[in-house]
């Protein structure tokens, strides 16, 4: 089977069979990542462009390596947010890349829906590497891969996501993706960081951290950004850590083999204590490896869509 759309704009637009295809493919790719011969020619002659309108090291490098491990020509473009302010037109930028022969554009943008606009206007495939507060599908897919690898599947799993749900595209993509695959997602956040109507996306809003982690198979923390203080959403990172930070003692209520996850980078001692981050149950570094595998799988599947 093949992916139905030329683009990966969000998990909202992927069916479970497509997600399974991606996860299965990522298993094969992970072997390449972990081998001593990280070079295959699956994407030889193809061009992958990373177009980042927001700073990112992890995601960009992850995509770049994924492309290079498969022999693609990988080019990185960083566009400062100031040029967006100057009125540089996204469609024009995209069309320029298109006619230079780009096959896949990986884009991160501060504006929700920006990848949709790009995808509608160019021939190349577009992978959304994070659009504002909307979605971050490749992160959720790597999270799902990490979960499936450890748990064997998703049906009936309880996944607790704790942190700044309001501003988190990672949370939204995970809620959608895990929900479609049969897991139950429980979320918990400071009340000011819980967006209105999020439960309509198919998750359960918890009224305490205890409720969220109770019997959980996966406990996931989200990054809290300092700028939330300035907007009067939380009073201090100390208070956040006290009431919303995850500690080893919280794992007492969850399943014995619960996974500890975080999309990174972690603010140690804020979202999670170091003891938890570095515990045996933590999959935080594994997530990074899996990210490369997932991105290889996506690039491969998109590049192969038009071939027989």
């Amino acid at each position: 089977m093949k992916l139905r759309s030329k683009d990966i704009l969000g998990l909202e637009y992927l069916e479970p069979d497509e997600m399974n295809l991606i996860l299965d493919m990522a298993s094969d790719m992970k072997k390449i990542v972990q081998s001593n011969m990280k070079r295959v020619n699956y994407l030889q002659g193809r061009s992958v462009m990373t177009l980042f309108y927001e700073n990112s090291t992890r995601t960009r490098v992850s995509f770049e390596l994924a492309a290079k491990y498969m022999g693609a020509n990988a080019v990185n473009i960083s566009v400062s947010s100031s040029s967006v302010a100057k009125g540089e037109n996204l469609i024009d930028t995209g069309r320029t890349l298109d006619v230079m022969g780009t096959d896949i554009v990986v884009m991160r943008h501060c504006q929700p829906g920006a990848p949709h606009l790009l995808a509608k206007n160019i021939r190349a495939s577009v992978i959304n590497a994070g659009d504002g507060m909307h979605e971050h599908p490749t992160q959720a897919l790597l999270d799902m891969y990490t979960i499936r690898e450890a748990k064997g599947g998703f049906e009936g799993l309880k996944v607790a996501i704790i942190g700044d749900i309001m501003h988190s595209r990672v949370a939204r993509s995970n809620i959608i993706g895990l929900g479609k695959m049969g897991a139950k997602v429980y979320i918990y956040a400071p009340a000011t960081l819980m967006p209105i109507g999020i439960e309509k996306m198919g998750c359960h809003i918890c009224s305490s951290l205890q409720e969220a982690v109770e019997g959980a198979d996966v406990v996931m923390g989200l990054r809290i950004q300092k700028e939330r203080l300035k907007k009067a959403l939380i009073p201090s990172t100390e208070e956040y850590a006290r009431f919303f930070g995850l500690d080893l003692r919280h794992l007492a209520g969850s399943k014995k083999d619960a996974l500890v996850m975080h999309p990174g980078p972690v603010n140690r001692g804020v979202e999670m204590t170091s003891l938890l981050i570095d515990s045996d149950q933590s999959r935080i570094t594994e997530q990074v490896t899996n990210g490369v595998a997932i991105r290889m799988a996506l690039l491969y599947l998109l590049a192969g869509r038009e071939e027989n």
Partner: peptide, 19 residues
């Protein structure tokens, strides 16, 4: 309003648009 772009609610939350 804090510079939002559409009604704050279920749809803005799903679309990730400031409400």
């Amino acid at each position: 309003a804090e510079g939002g772009s559409m009604n704050e609610g279920e749809t803005s939350t799903r679309l990730g648009v400031h409400g």
